[in-house]
């Protein structure tokens, strides 16, 4: 069978070619939303949080 040519058609299922599992979609969008939150919460220019401040706080305790 070595030199039989590959048939591209055989590689991909036809009925499910356009499917996106719902669980995966939730994951995809969920992570994007979380990313927006995290970016806002931990960017010094936006929220004022900074590594150095967090350190000072932890020492003061």
């Amino acid at each position: 069978m070595t030199d039989d040519l590959d048939n591209i058609e055989d590689f991909e299922a036809k009925e499910t070619a356009g499917k996106l599992p719902i669980g995966w979609l939730i994951l995809f969008w969920g992570l994007i939303i979380w990313g927006v939150y995290y970016f806002i919460a931990y960017t010094p220019g936006i929220s004022g949080w900074s590594q150095a401040k967090a350190y000072e706080e932890s020492v003061r305790k």
Binding site: Q51, A52, A54, Y55, S58, V59
Partner: peptide
């Protein structure tokens, strides 16, 4: 790193 115990162990971050 700016972590409390790390500064204790090694010195200024």
């Amino acid at each position: 790193r700016p972590l409390r115990t790390e500064v204790m162990r090694y010195g200024e971050y």
